[in-house]
């Protein structure tokens, strides 16, 4: 989402800090909030489970 869209004019030097732009972007947060647990918890975990060897 371009940061200019829907943003009110801002006082001072007018630059919205990066972190504030991140925190104001619900869909980027949604993406990150699904990505992190999917990669670290689900994918990593299932990869380990499928690699469990067959008993000797």
């Amino acid at each position: 989402m371009p940061e200019s869209e829907g943003k009110p004019p801002v006082e001072g030097d007018g630059r919205v800090p990066f972190m504030q732009r991140l925190l104001d972007n619900p869909f980027l947060l949604l993406f990150l909030g699904i990505l992190v647990p999917t990669v670290f918890y689900l994918l990593w975990g299932i990869m380990e489970i499928v690699q469990i060897p067959v008993a000797p």
């Binding site: 009110p8 801002v10 006082e11 001072g12 919205v16 800090p17 972190m19 504030q20 925190l23």
Partner: peptide
């Protein structure tokens, strides 16, 4: 207030 938008538009700079 937590139920209204931050009064300072550039709250990250606080």
């Amino acid at each position: 207030m937590a139920i209204t938008p931050p009064s300072n538009l550039l709250w990250w700079r606080e």
